[in-house]
Nucleic acid binder design. Structure first.
Length: 395
DNA sequence: ATTCCACAGGAAGCGACGGCCC
DNA sequence: GGGCCGTCGCTTCCTGTGGAAT
């Protein structure tokens, strides 16, 4: 009976005509061959990196701008074109310094570059100096120009400090047969201000700014992706996705996610077209998924902190203070048979939760009554219940 | 003008763990 | 097997903060 039901659902899904012509075109993994409204930036990057094709020295490059403004897509596009044109003379290596802890420390970054250059380096165990030596040897053996793209380079500054970045940008001084060109990419517009002046002048020899897209530009980008079958997109749908994403610092990724989710919602509901109501539903779904996922992936004590916040919120505490949070957290830990952590660590956890968008905090001075933080959960009443459900499953 | 409170937040260090090399 | 190394999650210690109370 159960098997029959599964087969029926499978058949129904397979037989249903899809609204999508090419869903991949709206995926974050999809890199188009053209980037509308980014001609100026593409041209600046190409001009800066073309000496590498000729075997000449290139300046280091710093690319910055808000998330979803096309920085990574532009660099990926230019990188592949340079590889095509330069053949064996140039190697382009792209590393995200945040993603999956692959390269968020000095050791890991050097190990990852070495791996991409063809030499496996163990995840831990070797002295960092040894990994440096392997990296240098590989560079000299290859006798090529290496274009090293470091996406989210700000993570490296936070974790490794300024010294490592400086060494990396001055690496050519110690190389005889090879050259390295560093391309740093950051979402943080003030990143270069945090750098030591020497590192800043080395890394930011050339800078390219990616401005946020406006609604009209986002509309063009969505229209050009051609992810849907003809006539499926209702009036005002693309405009609405573009307008919503434009409100959120002109994020093209957000616009594409909205359009894709709206299409999926319409398709699952058996509708023949994507309408504005599907975009509204998509926005709610994306916001909720993001929040719910962040809650589910928290470690135990992160969940205990969220439970404490929910408990205080339900008691009607309007402005939750650090002290109240910690005493509630201790009580929650007792209920869960968890050994509670120190106030300093819980303070750190609240900072992490804020970074993930689960809460907002504001430092408040109460004069004689000390200094504290007002903490608020970034969750409306509708999602609170579901998140509580998700928490109870895991605690 | 000074005191005081309740933290904020940086820095250093600890211990466990997994991995490498000899 | 032991010494060395990097990483992680945490604790401990410390100084700084700023406005109400005195």
């Amino acid at each position: 009976m159960r098997q029959l039901l599964i087969s029926e659902i499978l058949e129904e899904c397979l037989s249903k005509a899809s609204l999508f012509h090419d869903k991949e075109a709206l995926s974050s993994r999809f890199y188009p061959n053209e980037l509308p409204h980014r001609e100026e930036q593409l041209s600046a990057i190409i001009r800066s990196l073309t000496p590498a094709i000729k075997g000449e020295g290139t300046n280091n490059l710093f690319i910055y701008g808000q998330p979803g403004t096309g920085k990574t897509a532009a660099m990926t596009l230019v990188g592949s074109k340079i590889m095509e044109r330069a053949g064996d003379n140039v190697v382009v290596i792209s590393i995200n310094c945040r993603m999956g802890k692959v390269a968020d420390t000095e050791y890991r970054l050097l190990a990852e570059i070495s791996r991409q250059l063809g030499r496996e380096v163990p995840a831990t165990g070797l002295p960092t100096q040894e990994v440096y030596s392997i990296f240098f040897r590989l560079l000299e053996e290859k006798s090529k120009t290496l274009i090293l793209i470091l996406d989210e380079i700000d993570v490296l500054l936070d974790k490794c400090g300024d010294g490592f970045l400086y060494n990396l940008t001055r690496i050519n001084e110690t190389l005889s047969d090879s050259r390295v060109c560093i391309v740093g990419i950051s979402n943080n517009l003030l990143f270069s201000d945090y750098l030591d002046p020497r590192t800043k002048s080395s890394l930011c020899e050339e800078k390219v700014l990616f401005q946020p897209y406006d609604a009209a530009q986002l509309r063009d980008i969505l229209s050009e992706r051609a992810a849907f079958c003809e006539g499926v997109i209702g009036q005002g749908v693309i405009e609405k996705c573009a307008a919503l994403a434009a409100q959120e610092h002109g994020d093209a990724r957000r616009a594409m996610n909205l359009l894709r989710a709206a299409g999926e919602i319409a398709e699952n509901a058996g509708h023949q077209a994507v309408m504005e109501i599907h975009v509204d539903a998509a926005k709610r779904k994306l916001d909720f998924d993001c929040l719910s996922n962040a809650v589910k992936t928290q470690p135990k004590h992160g969940k205990a902190v969220i439970m404490s916040l929910i408990s205080l919120k339900e008691k009607g505490v309007d402005k939750i203070q650090t002290g109240d949070l910690y005493s509630t957290y201790q009580r929650v830990c007792k209920q869960l048979s968890l050994e509670h952590l120190t106030p300093r660590r819980v303070y750190g956890i609240t900072g992490e939760l804020e970074m993930q968008g689960l809460m907002t905090t504001k430092v408040v001075n109460k004069g004689r009554y000390g200094r504290t933080r007002h903490i608020e959960l970034s969750v409306n009443d509708e999602t609170l219940g579901t998140i509580k459900g998700a928490l109870s499953e895991y605690c």
